[in-house]
Design a protein around this nucleic acid. Sequence first.
DNA 1: CCGTACATACTCGAAGTCGAGTATTCGACC
DNA 2: GGTCGAATACTCGACTTCGAGTATGTACGG
Lengths: 200, 200
Amino acid sequence: MRSRSNPLALAVLALLFEGPMHPYELATTMRERHKEESIKLNYGTLYSVMQSLDKRGLVRVKEVVREGRRPERTIYEITEAGRVEMIDWLSSLIATPAQEFTDFEAGLSLIGVLEPEIVLRLLEERLMRLTQQVQGQEAMYESALKDGLARLLLIEMEYVITLRRAELAWLRELVGQLRDGTLEGLELWREWHRESGETP
Amino acid sequence: MRSRSNPLALAVLALLFEGPMHPYELATTMRERHKEESIKLNYGTLYSVMQSLDKRGLVRVKEVVREGRRPERTIYEITEAGRVEMIDWLSSLIATPAQEFTDFEAGLSLIGVLEPEIVLRLLEERLMRLTQQVQGQEAMYESALKDGLARLLLIEMEYVITLRRAELAWLRELVGQLRDGTLEGLELWREWHRESGETP
DNA sequence: CCGTACATACTCGAAGTCGAGTATTCGACC
DNA sequence: GGTCGAATACTCGACTTCGAGTATGTACGG
C-alpha cells in the first residue's frame, strides 16, 4: 500500500480527528506539540498530502474562508472513512514491527570501504556528538515532565532516548575494541586495503 | 543537499569503487551481500539514481555491451569526483548523528488518539512479534559468524540487534506498567477519551 | 521436446517529495 | 511613522521514488 508510505498523512488524520483545521494550522499544531521531531514536516508535501487524502475520500473540504486580503484558508474535516483508515493504519504501525531503514545503518553496512583508522576517528566523533545530543534530549525530557506534561505525551521521546542510549553503549564498546585492536578480523580488513590500494 | 538523500546512491558509489558494473549486477551484488536489508533497493529507483549520478559526473558509462538478443547492459565506472563524494558522504553519515525518522516513532507520537486498552493490546502484539523477529535475527547472525564471515561485514546486523533488544526491554516495561495501571497519567488519558467520546 | 517457472536486464508513467518562492499582514523598535 | 523581520498561508516546478510491465534466455521436469 503506497498510500500508507508517508506518516505525515497519518498525523493529519489524527489531528483532524480532534476537529477541522486548515493545512497551515495543522503544521503549526504539529510544531507546538513537537510532532515535527518524530514526523517529517514539509510545506509542499503537506499540501499535496491534503489533496491526496481528499481524492481518496479520507478528508473533505469543510469551507474556504478569507480574512481581509490574506490568502484563502481551506479548512478540512475528516470523514468516516478517514477515521477508520487512521485507526487501522496507526494500529498496524504499533502492532507490527517493520523494516526501518536508517541512514546510520546504511553507512555502517558500507564502512568496509574505509580504512580502519579512519573509521575509528569517525566513530569517536559520533560518540562525542551523540553523547552531547542525548544529554540535551534528556534535559528536555526531564524539564517537560517537571512542567507537568503527561508521560504519555512524551512517550516517543522516551523511546528515542532509550534507543540512543543503547547505541551509545554499543558504540563505546566498538570504539574500545577498534582502539586496542581486539576487534575480530581487523587484520583481514587492513590487508584487504593494502591489496586494493596497490591496484587502483 | 538533496542529492544526498537516498543512501542507494552511496551504495552504488561504494560498489563501483571496487570495479565497473552494470545496474542489474549492482542490484544482485547488494542482495548477495545482504545490503538490501540495510538499504532500500528498488529497480526503478536504481536506474534513475544511475542517471542522476552520471549527470552529476560521479559515475560515467564505461561501455554498453549486448550478448545475443538480451537487453543491452550499460556498464558504469566511478569517477574521481565520485570517489571523493563517496568518502565524504559516508564519513558524514558515520560521524554525525542525524535525525532519523522511523514509522514506529511516528506511530508512538500519535497513540494518544487510541484508548489505553487498545494501545495495551497493540503493544502486547508488537512485543510478541518483535521477540520472534529478534530471535530470528540473532540466529542468522550467529550462523553467519560460524560460517567464518568477518564481524566487520556483519556490523550493521549487530547494531540493529542491539537496538531491537533495547526496544524490547523498554516495551516490556511499558506494557507492564500499562497492564497493572502504574503508568503515570493513565487516568487523565481515560478521562480525555470519555469526554471526546461523548461529543463526536 | 514442450511448457513453464525463474533469471536477466531494463523501461515507463503515475505519484510523491522537496525547498524555494510569493504576497500579505502584524508587531516592535528606533 | 517608517521599516524590517517574523508570521501567515499557500504555490510551483524540478526532481525522486515506486512498482508494475516488457521481452528474451535458461534450466528442468514430465
